[in-house]
């Protein structure tokens, strides 16, 4: 039993708190208002979670029986699962680092722009891709990078004499990941600058004036004033996004194909194929894979929470 904290007034006099039940009764109006939300959360968020028990069942149209950890044993013994697991981590983490880095660079450049009209126009232009659906983005880039005569990139490279034969970018194991990162940078970098630009607008102008007086060049001001001011925000953005690295589906699903499974198949696409593309799926197995993915995601959230506490003094949950 820990020592009870005593609540005191500003003059140091102890305040005698009323019992919780009485305080609840006194605030019954608030509790009543909270009740619908509580019920909603229970039904919509927690009730479906009961489905995780199917991870311990052989649950197909043919069978429904408890099999303990067999689904997990099968999962850990499956090469395709591990391939999808490591692809998920690799694609997510590298994508996160690249898009964050690109967002920082663009934010700094935008911050340095003096012409406000050009700055606002550029901001709007780079925000736009974020609002396009992944299906549309994939269609655009597939056409853009196509191997056929309508593929702009291949035709341009050939006309410049850079390549002789068209490159099948979207079907090449060597090219798929760089293309994937590039498309993500194109789509998400603009949106990612929002938080950095907000931070930059909060930097004390006196710091720049002081640097001017000291005779600092523009690059020196960026390096010695702007970047240090952004460091804490960069770290927070990385930490917050690290918790979501397992949630990778749509962007991969619309861009991958059988030939690049080795470098592109992620856990969510693996679950999709096992659960939705087969005549008699074992929902128990796909639930087990999904549960494992959630557990890894949960651990990452806790790690990030710990890191966040260390970096900024408060957690993210």
């Amino acid at each position: 039993m820990g020592k009870q904290k005593t609540v005191t007034t500003s003059s140091g006099q102890p305040i005698r708190k009323k019992p919780l039940s009485i305080r609840m009764w006194n605030s019954r109006g608030y509790y009543l208002m909270f009740l619908p939300v509580f019920i909603y959360v229970l039904i919509v968020y927690y009730w479906p979670m009961l489905g995780v028990r199917y991870a311990f069942y052989d649950y197909s149209l043919k069978n429904f029986e408890f099999i303990g950890l067999d689904n997990f044993k099968e999962m850990f013994a499956t090469k395709d699962f591990w391939r999808a697991f490591f692809n998920t981590l690799q694609l997510s983490v590298i994508k996160l680092l690249i898009t964050t880095f690109a967002s920082v660079i663009i934010s700094v450049f935008l911050n340095e722009m003096g012409n406000m009209v050009a700055k606002k126009t550029l901001q709007t232009v780079i925000y736009l891709p974020h609002f396009m659906s992944w299906a549309v983005v994939a269609a655009i880039f597939t056409l853009f990078l196509s191997k056929s005569s309508s593929g702009f990139v291949n035709e341009t490279l050939k006309s410049w004499g850079v390549i002789e034969k068209s490159i099948d970018f979207m079907h090449s194991k060597a090219w798929w990941r760089p293309i994937y990162y590039m498309v993500n940078v194109w789509k998400e970098t603009g949106w990612g600058t929002v938080i950095f630009l907000a931070t930059l607008s909060g930097i004390n102008p006196e710091l720049y004036e002081a640097a001017d007086i000291d005779g600092a060049s523009r690059m020196q001001k960026i390096w010695n004033v702007t970047v240090p001011a952004l460091a804490n925000t960069i770290l927070i953005v990385l930490i917050l996004n690290l918790a979501k690295v397992m949630n990778l589906f749509e962007s991969v699903f619309v861009m991958y194909n059988t030939r690049v499974y080795k470098v592109a198949d992620v856990i969510s696409t693996y679950i999709y194929r096992e659960g939705f593309m087969t005549a008699l799926p074992n929902y128990g197995y796909t639930t087990a894979v999904g549960l494992f993915k959630s557990l890894v995601g949960c651990v990452l959230v806790l790690v990030c929470n710990f890191a966040s506490k260390k970096v900024r003094g408060r957690g993210i949950i």
Binding site: T78, D80, T258, Y261, R273
Partner: peptide, 18 residues
């Protein structure tokens, strides 16, 4: 075969295309 149908088909498609 029923239990492994999707995995087999998926692998065969991948290999065929490669």
């Amino acid at each position: 075969l029923t239990a492994n149908q999707e995995d087999l088909t998926s692998k065969k498609k991948e290999l065929m295309n490669l």
